[in-house]
């Protein structure tokens, strides 16, 4: 059977078993504070108290960000991107209010706005 003769969905870009690659880079970086904050935020949203989303939904959200993002974003950037998409999709927050708050925070911290 070939890929063309049926309607099979393509292999997900996250579904890596056996794909092959180069040597495993064993360098470990100490997690930066922002990475731990993302871990904590995502953890709390799937936790027993909030149950705002499931881990399965977050994974699905990451698996639908697109291959470019999947391969270029850092691990916790992916988590945050997936989580934001879900919050917006569920109507919990809007993109506009997130953007507005991000601007406020950048001003507060004295950071230049990104593009």
């Amino acid at each position: 059977m070939t890929q063309q003769d049926d309607d099979r969905a393509p292999r997900g870009y996250h579904d890596l078993g056996g794909v092959g690659g180069g040597p495993v880079d064993m360098t470990e970086h100490v997690l930066e504070p922002w990475e731990k904050r993302v871990d904590a935020l995502c953890g709390i949203l799937v936790g027993k108290k909030c149950r705002l989303m499931t881990i399965d939904e977050r994974r699905d959200a990451i698996e639908t960000l697109g291959e470019d993002k999947y391969t270029s974003l850092k691990y916790y950037e992916l988590w945050m991107a997936g989580t934001m998409n879900l919050l917006i999709e569920k109507g919990t927050l809007s993109q506009d209010e997130i953007d507005e708050r991000m601007d406020q925070i950048r001003r507060r911290l004295g950071l230049e706005a990104e593009e």
């Binding site: 099979r8 969905a9 078993g17 699905d60």
Partner: peptide
């Protein structure tokens, strides 16, 4: 089977 969506059965198996 090769359905779309979030699938927990790895492609390779």
């Amino acid at each position: 089977r090769y359905p779309p969506g979030h699938i927990r059965t790895p492609y390779y198996i």
